[in-house]
Amino acid sequence: MDKDCSLKKKIFNIIQIGDKSNRISRAFDIFITITIVLNILVTFAQTFDELSRITMGLKAIEYVTLGIFCVEYVLRIWTAEYLYPNIGRKQAKLRFLISFDGVIDLLTIVPVFFLSGFVIFRMLRVARIFHLFRLNAKYDSFNVITTVLYEKRNQIISSVFIVLILMLASSLCMYSVEHDTQPDVFRNAFSGVWWSMSTLLTVGYGDIYPVTTLGRVMAICIAYLGVGAVAIPTGIISAGFVEQYQRKSSLSNLKNADIKQIAEIFVDKRYAGKSIEEVEEQEQLTIFLILREDLSILPQKDTLLKQGDIIIIRAEGEKE
């Protein structure tokens, strides 16, 4: 039993994405990345009639890469208990199956059994591309982007909601004004939605456009509103990047701080399982660095602390 657990733990450490301290794990990440890219290239190559002579070879490569995905998927289910150590084995496996990574893995594998079936299953092959996002999300360069999107999710959702309201309102208004003049163009409210989408998002396909004076005046106003509405989420995301940059820059300023203001705290059961944001708000301090075994981790607001971690902190009241 101990040998099986030890083997399972080693396999988990190898297939765990983003573990830079483990050379075998890093090599596995590179291998999976190459496999994903190869699989995607084969999928694209199969759409060219000029390459029909090597269809069998492309199919063979696709099946081999999908076989690797299947093995990886099974191993991730098998070792899910180490990914979610605070819940039982069955619950951990179920949680992985319904997680983003688990769903992407499943959608990657399913199409191979329905390649000649429904169109929807063949379309699921696009999910393989999301494997690359899953791999890259564990590294610092891409993690900054995902962190900003997660932290600003409420503001982004609100701004998208505003755009949708403007889109529906403008489509109904344009349909009311233009339907009598262009009954074949603005047949229904959906035609207005298509026009408002291309206008608000500044695409301007030109396949549908107003011809009445009132319609053109409304189109000018809606186009101006579209410029401002689309700029809202852009500004929110840009502000988030600035905050992340300032957060990371504060680490470089630690060397200029008074050493008496810096402290190390050993994470016990009181803090284990809590996020950085929760601890900072609760204790009124700033966490600059997490020391976890042989790793040095730059903290994000949603980073969960583990028992045994050492956090480098600075009390809020002692800042200059």
Rank of each mutant, 00 (worst) to 15 (best):
L172T: 10
S159L: 04
V148I: 09
I157A: 10
V163K: 04
V144Y: 08
E151K: 05
I145V: 15
P183I: 11
Q155M: 08
P183G: 12
Q182F: 05
I157H: 02
I157Y: 08
T181Y: 09
I157G: 02
F133N: 09
V148G: 01
S141I: 07
V160Q: 02
S170G: 15
S159N: 07
A137V: 01
T147P: 07
S141M: 12
C173T: 14
Q155S: 05
A137F: 01
T147K: 02
F142G: 03
M174I: 15
Y150R: 14
I162Q: 01
E178F: 03
S159P: 03
V160M: 10
L166F: 11
N136I: 11
L168A: 15
C173L: 15
E178I: 05
S158A: 14
F133V: 12
I157W: 02
F161D: 00
L172M: 15
T147H: 05
D180S: 14
M167Y: 04
M174G: 04
V163L: 14
M174V: 12
K152I: 01
F161W: 07
Y150D: 06
L132V: 11
L135E: 06
Y150Q: 09
R153C: 04
M174L: 13
Q182P: 03
C173D: 07
L166P: 01
I162D: 00
I162K: 01
L135I: 14
Q182H: 11
Q182K: 09
I156E: 07
